[in-house]
Simulated scan of single mutants.
Amino acid sequence: MAADGFQSGAFQHTVKSPALFAGVGVHTGEYTQVAVRPAETDAGVVFVRLDVTDRDNRVPVSPEAVCKTQLGTVITNAAGVTVATIEHLMAALVMSGIDNAVVELDGPEMPIMDGSSWPFLKILDRAGRRPQAAARRFIELIDTVEVTDGDKRAALKPAMRFEVAFAIEFPTAVIGRQEIDLAMDEAAFRRELADCRTFGFLHEVEALRAMGLARGGTMDNCVVIEGDRVLNPEGLRRPDEFVRHKALDAIGDLYVLGAPILGRFEGELAGHGINNQLVRALAARPDAWRVVTFADEIDVAV
């Protein structure tokens, strides 16, 4: 079996053993314990709020479940139970080849960890992956789907593999205009994107906290910019860490579709909001994609 979880193709996978971790939410500031547990075939990713006992506490992931996209992706169920900031874990799950998982947590928001997907990858690595007796489904693009919102644009286009292109522009010398264009598999994700952290501007923090956001944000889990300088003593992990984190976010946001993409994602000044507009537009265009499997290519001796 191929070492690459994203491209190892034919079988669905779940975690071999529970992946356990804990930390504070970047917006709520609440300390939350999490267990990513094995799930049955075709279950997808389902979040379960263990602290909610008076109504349905299961929140399955889907494009329609996304209810808020301000500074993070929030999902909800029909009972109004929400789970916030799921995108960094979702990116780690899809790129490490985890199709089915139950994510139990005892609070309203996923821990931010260091602001990237890297801690989640390490935790999932320790838990291991288990192949399941069902074909892995991919969403293959057969026509372009594109959404725009002012100067923001996001698109999914046909391609022979998963590709991610992104461009951002901010009026600070620390960022300016940054662009990346990458063929993306598990190895590339680990090498190019997984350790790139979320970022914010110091002048926005007070306003965000007045809105009940960024209460857990610190320089341990966020790159903080003031004017034309980075305040974090350790500096950046990469000169273009900012655009790379935006690409990481997009990969997590796409996985609310419930299957990995075979196609090309393009984002121009995009964020969680337009990413969700895109996945909803794709779901509404069944002529633009098809579900494919690679069951014939499987080596049953996994």
Rank of each mutant, 00 (worst) to 15 (best):
A92S: 11
G176P: 05
L156C: 01
W289M: 02
T172H: 06
Q12M: 12
G267P: 04
V52I: 15
A173T: 13
V24F: 13
P171M: 01
M160C: 12
A210W: 09
I75F: 09
R190C: 10
R215Q: 13
P38D: 04
V94G: 00
T14A: 02
G9Q: 11
A155I: 00
T144Q: 11
G267F: 07
G235W: 12
L202A: 14
M160V: 14
W289Y: 15
Y31C: 09
G80T: 10
R177L: 07
Y255A: 05
E192I: 05
F162I: 04
A133E: 13
L213W: 08
E266I: 12
I180A: 02
R191A: 15
G80N: 08
E268W: 11
T198D: 06
I251R: 00
M160A: 15
F201L: 03
A79C: 08
A165G: 15
Q277Y: 13
A165W: 04
I98A: 00
V147A: 02
F11I: 10
A167M: 14
L269G: 04
P108N: 10
F138C: 03
K16M: 13
R285I: 09
A167D: 15
I175K: 00
V256M: 00
L202W: 10
D299A: 11
L248R: 05
S96Q: 11
T73L: 00
A39H: 03
D99H: 09
G44R: 00
A295E: 10
F242K: 01
L257C: 14
P260A: 07
D54H: 13
G44V: 02
F189Q: 04
G176S: 09
E297C: 07
F199T: 00
N275R: 07
L254W: 01
D125E: 14
L282V: 08
I142H: 05
T172F: 04
E266A: 06
R285S: 14
A3V: 14
E146T: 07
V45M: 08
R244C: 01
I261A: 08
T172C: 07
A92D: 07
D185K: 06
P111S: 11
R129W: 08
L248G: 04
A295V: 05
R238Y: 12
N57T: 00
G25W: 04
A214Q: 08
G227V: 11
M184I: 15
G23A: 12
F189R: 07
V34Q: 08
L254Q: 02
A165E: 15
V15M: 06
D287E: 15
V24I: 14
L193E: 03
K152N: 13
F189L: 09
D185G: 13
S8Y: 03
A270F: 01
G44I: 00
A288S: 06
G80W: 07
V102T: 05
K157S: 15
R244K: 10
V59C: 09
V147G: 00
V223N: 00
L213R: 05
L141N: 01
E140W: 01
V26T: 04
F242A: 01
K68L: 12
T85C: 06
G80I: 09
V34T: 12
